[in-house]
Amino acid sequence: MPIHDQSYRRYAGSRNEPGSAWLVITKAGIRSLLGRKLFLAVMLAAWGQFFVRAVIFYLSANFPTLDVLAPSVETFRQFFEMQEIFVLFVTVYVGSGLIANDRRSNALQIYLSKPLSRTEYVAGKLGILAFFLLMVTLVPALALLLLEVMFSASLAFLSEHLFLLPAVTLYALAEVLLASFTMLALSSLSTSARYTAVLYAGVLFFTGAVFAILRGATRSSMLAWLSLRANLDQIGDVIFRLPPRFESPWPASVLVVLLLMGLSVVVLDRRVRGVEVVT
């Protein structure tokens, strides 16, 4: 019996279902980021608001004199508004290098030479960013809702505002998907994570500044759809059944968000390729 047989052998390992390879990329990315102390500090800071609100919920539930602090629909809307800055930081930290770094080190070709489709590659990268963004938006918001029930020992608030469950989920998904898709698309356009990060922050704040100037000059918020952030704010108000804060029609904001995500998909489709054909 030969000690080492170099002839053909059947693959004896386990086979994954086609289409599940993205999970490998996501898992590896999450594990890698969780090992960074600075990132953990950012995540902890992002959960700061949750802890403060948890204390407020506890006080309002147990001390009747503090019922002015009792949670309302606006509380959850404000929670998301205050998390926006952490959504930016996490998006920049996690997302800026997701594809740019692979392009820089020519790892994209190695990835795509494996049994991994381009869709799976993008989905895997998207999964990393979406996971951490959901960790700072959807998860703490749902946890707050749960805490309210626990502290008040009553389902009254939840049953009165049952729409909050889908509202929180829907808004978090809209915010996370928009940030993830746009950041991934920008990341695929460059080989520098630093450049991608600044480009993302630039686009976000520049569109906001354009809207602010035009709003000041025209005395109208009809052009809110120009701002990335204002679009989310407008959609958020509608989802949380609050009066929209801008005069522009909210379907316009939905359309802009969908268009941006569509554009990002097109950019990703063109940029994430195993072989770059130079003409």
Binding site: F205, A209, A212, G216, A217
Partner: peptide
């Protein structure tokens, strides 16, 4: 009342001082 100087002031604040200058400095 919005006039040229007010819009220019808005643009200096909104575009340059709050956005362009810090972002260029960071980058």
């Amino acid at each position: 009342t919005i006039d040229g100087p007010v819009i220019f002031g808005l643009m200096i604040w909104g575009f340059y001082l709050s956005f362009s200058v810090p972002l260029l400095g960071v980058f």
